[in-house]
Design a binder for these strands. Structure first.
Lengths: 345, 345
DNA sequence: TATTAGCACTCTCTTTGAACGAGTGCTAAC
DNA sequence: GTTAGCACTCGTTCAAAGAGAGTGCTAATA
């Protein structure tokens, strides 16, 4: 257990380092108003904090720098919310001003605004289309042997796939298929589609419409809507402003990580709702050594609709980012719910 | 006019610098077999070449480096094609192996393969959807006041827009509109769509179907398919491997340029078909100082379908890249023609 | 006359050492 | 328990020195 003085010194050290990116020395600290102790006292406390693993030195006679454990303790115990100015709230609200109808544009713009406000890179997970429901299914033949299948969801999203038509099928066959599918699949979630299609195929088979069987097979293959997260970036190059990425090697590896973030399983997948902070190696990726990711999810009640991630150095301004994400995610929750459930309902 | 010896020395100098990225000195050059002259002779020739503006020095007593004019002369007069190995041709052909039906995937994969083969970053311009023709038009209502308009093109591409429905319109109105549009607009190029829709609207107005006027207006606004080039990147981070981008500042500015390349008017717009090389400031962008862009277009006969760009330092391996682009663009021309005109015909 | 050897010179890069500053740990005094 | 004092450590900066690669010029050579 930490004493009050240790708590204070740890907090001020982390704050100062977040601010300046320079190792924090005892003399430096003692000059601050909040710290009414002499350098020697601070040195003793810092030595203890180092022994406990909250601080570390870059070399024997340098000032102290927070360790990963130090940051963890800081975010777990010392993170008081920061007041967000009216002006900033206004900026966030401006996302919804235009009353755009397309959710994609809202998400795109959100990514940019949050990045501008934080000066870090943001990544937003697009709405999971597989959670939308089929509104209308149709097929447009392109040639004798190919056609495009189109699914419109209740949210206005359109999925389309080209698939090949086995020989000897005619317009009338296709029309029958479209009718069959529309009868059965309207209202079904996109992620249930393959299973439901399978079921429809079975029924068709039983009803001696064996003729259509091939066609369903080909279509089924095309409509296997695989789950590849679509992500939107805001201020992708912001991260390069941080002094810790002055090395091109580091810059490359973090850029690479960002480009493949949608292939990293579970990066956006959060156990609990709300805000989650992953510090340094907690991201389970060598490229992310020295980086933190703050993720916030949004959505109404139990349904999680999407998430926002902010990438920065471990030395990032957790207080500010967390507070901003709080505002942003609750506003997004409201607005997207309105659009998806209220407006279109 | 350059003498043969000057020609030789310029060529070897450029080749060597492309290879090593180090200023080329006279002693160094004289060691090469192709150069049977003493350092002193080479020095004299180099001094002349420098006076003519083909070479420059980084400092008074350094070796020589090609100037932009030097590169220009090199690519204009000394670019002999490089033999592409069977293995490499195989790799390029592998793009078409799977007989994918979707052109987008072919383009995506092309971008990656060409980047792997060259070790530079590639940018591919997506097929211009506005050159496709309308195959089918339809509207799916989402709610009382919004609907999604869907256009399927003859190439299997699907464009869709959400638009708002003015009050007091019913399903029957919309059906009439869809019929009207399908009657008139099937076969029309996408880029002609706004103008054609306008014409249809006028007709409707004259036929005393004034009722539909509002609806057309709203739709028209939504369908104004603006021309934003879609681009695909291959090996976006390759450029950072080049020693000239070891400076984060430069890395940032080139990455930024790449992210906005689709907004740069005319970057892919080529006056002549075939291969075009832009060196350094020829790109008209400060961020591109020190970079060259090699662009190749593909398509059949007079119709240009798309283009590939390779981004590298001015010191890039022009010979190899040009040769590879030659193979790639002619293969792409064939394959995409087959798909778009033959197959789907 | 064209080419080359020789030489003095220039500039960059690396190494070295000294001075400086900020920080530390420890001990003794308050 | 807290702090002042002191010796020590390490990174940074700066200047000086030497090595290395290159140049321009001049005179000798083929």
């Amino acid at each position: 257990m930490l004493t009050n003085r240790q708590l204070l010194i740890l907090q001020v050290t982390v704050d100062d380092f977040i601010d300046t990116a320079l190792p924090v020395g005892s003399r430096q600290l003692s000059k601050k108003e909040e710290v009414p102790f002499s350098p020697a006292t601070i040195r003793n406390e810092m030595a203890d904090l180092e022994e406990m693993g909250f601080l570390e030195k870059t070399h024997t006679s340098s000032g102290r720098v927070p360790s990963q454990k130090g940051y963890r303790y800081y975010v777990d115990n010392m993170l008081t919310p920061q007041r967000i100015s009216q002006n900033e709230i206004k900026q966030i609200r401006s996302i919804f001003e235009e009353r755009k109808l397309e959710t994609e544009q809202i998400i795109r713009k959100s990514a940019e605004i949050i990045s501008e406000l934080t000066n870090y890179t943001s990544i937003m997970l697009g709405l999971d289309v597989r959670k939308h429901r089929v509104k209308r299914f149709s097929i447009v033949p392109l040639s004798n042997d190919s056609a495009v299948a189109i699914i419109v969801t209740d949210s206005g999203h359109v999925e389309n796939r080209v698939f090949s038509i086995p020989e000897n099928f005619q317009a009338s066959d296709i029309e029958r298929m479209v009718n069959l599918i529309n009868e059965r699949l309207v209202g079904v979630y996109l992620h249930e589609l393959p299973a439901m299609l399978e079921a429809v195929t079975m029924t068709v088979l039983q009803q001696n419409n064996g003729r259509l069987n091939n066609l369903f097979g080909s279509l089924n293959k095309a409509l296997n809507i695989e789950h590849e997260d679509k992500v939107y970036y805001g201020g992708k190059l912001q991260i390069l402003n941080q002094p810790e990425f002055n090395d091109v090697e580091k810059a490359r590896s973090i850029m690479n990580w960002m480009d493949h973030v949608n292939q990293i399983p579970g990066i956006f997948h959060m156990d609990k709702k709300g805000i989650q902070i992953r510090i340094g190696s907690e991201n389970n990726d060598l490229a992310m050594e020295g980086c933190s990711v703050i993720t916030a999810s949004y959505g109404i009640s139990e349904e999680q609709m999407g998430s926002i991630a902010i990438i920065g150095p471990t030395r990032m301004d957790y207080r500010r980012v967390v507070s901003l994400l709080d505002v942003m995610s609750s506003d997004l929750s409201k607005e997207l719910s309105r659009i998806l459930h209220g407006h279109y309902g």
